[in-house]
Amino acid sequence: MARFEYLEARTLRQAISLLQRHGDEARIVAGSTDFLVRWRQGVWQPKYVVNIGRIASLRRISYSRRLGLRLGALVSVRDLETHPQIQSNYSALSAAAASFAGVQVRNLATVGGNVCNASPAGDTLPALLAFDAQCKIAGPEGDRWVALSEFFTGPGRTVLQTGEILTELRLPPPLPNTGSLYIKHSPRGAMDIATLGVASVISLEGSGRVCRNLRIGLGAVAPTPIRASSAESLLWGREVTPELITSAAQAAKADAKPIGDVRGSAEHRQDMVAVLTQRTLDRALDMARGNPMAFEMQRQFAIQAAF
């Protein structure tokens, strides 16, 4: 806990100029749910705190079938959970949001904060990766775009430069015949960080056998959230069989490079990648084949507490 000066920006431009002025001595806050914890622990000791939480333009959500989903960085995790268009078109993201902390924290926490905090265990991140999110970044030099899969550089580290702010996430429109599911493995059924999280999004060719598109996002098994690329490439463009899914699950396990911590050993995490990948793929495939799963059921999967 150290003293700091509190600054509030009302516009993006103001925020950028405050950040430019104070450089590395400043820290952005949005919902402050990570910030307050880190500050109290003495891990973060900024001289200036720049609150961007009141910049109204960063709160927008819009969805269209042609352009997909646009999420302002300040969109709350609670909105991700409850927004009807997100629930129906990006259900693994809504379910992931539902598995996040408790309602009070979800109301405060922002999606931009979850992304920029860059925790390997961030709950929205596997689903955002699996839905191929793109990041819009505003800075002193103007805007730039970075794919979310390129955004993370290490635990708590991102490509953001001093003075830059994440302003928006864009998710391409879902393909037809798509199913998605997030499963979170954590000791408690709420208010708990993922020991492991897996999100799979699979789209089938019209006939319903061949995999047209597949992304698997893995959380808490590497220094950053990652895609299970070798698992994805096993299925991409191929006819999906149970054997192939099992191989993909094993490949995902090999893609994971977990560490051990208070929540579980590295070996256990690695083993669980195969199990959860298999389960997300099985169910997502079923949904892609036209057997929808009620959101409540998906939520149950997402918060599958594993004591």
């Binding site: 000791p187 408690r188 059924g189 709420a190 208010m191 708990d192 960080i193 208070v262 929540r263 918060i303 507490a305 004591f307």
Partner: peptide, 16 residues
Amino acid sequence: VLNPSLATYLMPLAVD
């Protein structure tokens, strides 16, 4: 003590 916090010392919740 390695987990001196309610985020890492896990007491069950109502949902559990």
